[in-house]
Design a binder for these strands. Sequence first.
DNA 1: CGATCGTTTGACGGTGCTCAATCACCGTGG
DNA 2: CCACGGTGATTGAGCACCGTCAAACGATCG
Lengths: 293, 293
Amino acid sequence: MTNIPCCTTHATSQEAWRLRRNDIAPLPEPVTLGELVQTLGGDIREVRKPAEAAPVSLWRIRQGATLLHEGCAAQSVFVLRSGSMKRIRTLEDGYEQVLSFAQPGELLGFDALHSGRQPAAVVALEDSTVCVLPLNDHLLARHDCLALDRALQVALSRQLVRTAGTTEMMAALASDVRLARFLLWMSQRMDEAGRSPRRLFLRMCRRDIASLLGVAHETVSRSFTLLAELGLVKVENREVEILDLDGLHRRALNTRRAGDEAPGAAQKAASDWSAALQPDWFAPVRQVAAAAA
Amino acid sequence: MTNIPCCTTHATSQEAWRLRRNDIAPLPEPVTLGELVQTLGGDIREVRKPAEAAPVSLWRIRQGATLLHEGCAAQSVFVLRSGSMKRIRTLEDGYEQVLSFAQPGELLGFDALHSGRQPAAVVALEDSTVCVLPLNDHLLARHDCLALDRALQVALSRQLVRTAGTTEMMAALASDVRLARFLLWMSQRMDEAGRSPRRLFLRMCRRDIASLLGVAHETVSRSFTLLAELGLVKVENREVEILDLDGLHRRALNTRRAGDEAPGAAQKAASDWSAALQPDWFAPVRQVAAAAA
DNA sequence: CGATCGTTTGACGGTGCTCAATCACCGTGG
DNA sequence: CCACGGTGATTGAGCACCGTCAAACGATCG
């Protein structure tokens, strides 16, 4: 049970060493199904009593360890509970294409359900913990617990919204606009997690950001300094403080290359972008959801 | 019933005219639940007898009509049955950001489940038909029919894989590489649909492609001619014939700007890219996976 | 046949990629 | 204690690619 199949560390020269360090190991005390639903962002009050206490196993992933290997058989779905991860695909020439960064509450490995194999690798950016949902029990558990089922569906929906955000990040033409959108995206995540949206600590290196944004990593560096010179952010290595959230919104809005914005439309522009980044819409009246319950 | 709320045509000056033309209208004869599962890519044999014949309403969407409006309340989930659509988000400056193109079998509107509102608009690129799953019945139907439930989960998983493909398309640095990846992506879709993967008819305009790829639309034009000059494709307006699928794979692989490839590693490179585009993996059975069994 | 939209091609200027050097940081070993 | 190599981040120089503007051409439809 200590050695988790298909979920060992990344295949480097230090693999043996890392295995000895137990880069991936189950934690002794499992979490409850109620907590899992909560981690997913669902409502714990919807969980019925007997199911609420059902045990869900929990794993600890060390920084740099690979939770899922590209091409491996699908066996489990994971829910990120704490920490952060990156989804990557390694191209033939060795280039690591970053597909997304995962924050707590996100589903990992669900995309393997389609083909039965992992389409991307998942690597921990820091020490993290994940809940484990073996695929065998997956469908059964969902039918046993309506709340879990709902939470999973909503989580999947959120996933789709977030990938759309990724697309919008990369679609910007100017590189500093892409970075601005990325920072706002991160800021939004911090806000959702209940932390300050102005203080970011980027767990990923410049190269990973560059890969996600589709630019050279030197350009990411230059864009950071540009945004800093504009007084929008304060950058100190991986610590980023957002000084002017509104101004950052304005800059993130620029579709075309021309750098200077018309200050008139800027206000409304900001609201548009926060709408894109903020899954919790201004008025999240879930009529349909309420009707279903 | 003729006027579907929140699903009218796009808000142009011709809206009234289009409404008169019944751009969106339910078809008189509904389809069966068994067919719906089949459309989703599921196995119809898994559908139990009584449920198989359950009626699912079908809508016809005219080219240019808007099936889902950005910001509207979530009411139904749709399954694209025939035709093609584009998902777009309109930014403040009026720029239409294309998020993805949808092919038959894809789920539309599911991303609204999270916030209760549509995060993006969905516009038909050609005359299309969609199956309608009202959210009220959604959960119930899923529990009634296990096959539908499975098919929906797999479809969602496929959705996630496809958005990753979008990310990879946009992540390429050179514009012609992006276009090559896009064409391969389209080619893959044609193949999945059982049509020739070498003959494409692009339903979207250059501007839409450019928006998705994050380049100027003139650049898309130039990249088309470049790929044509290389003898990889034959372009005639929106009809594209892929002359050298292997060569296109090779060009799509280029991570860096430098245009000319080393022909030695090209062969293996091609296999990598088809792996990215083709969810049905060939056989990269990792050792780790083997150790698991 | 004219109007409108989509596509292509040209010219030019600027952004960003490449290559390269420098510096900071860190764990290691002398 | 400091040299040492390794990694990551920043900055600079040069040039190619691509965005912008513009015009011409083609397609479609009334």
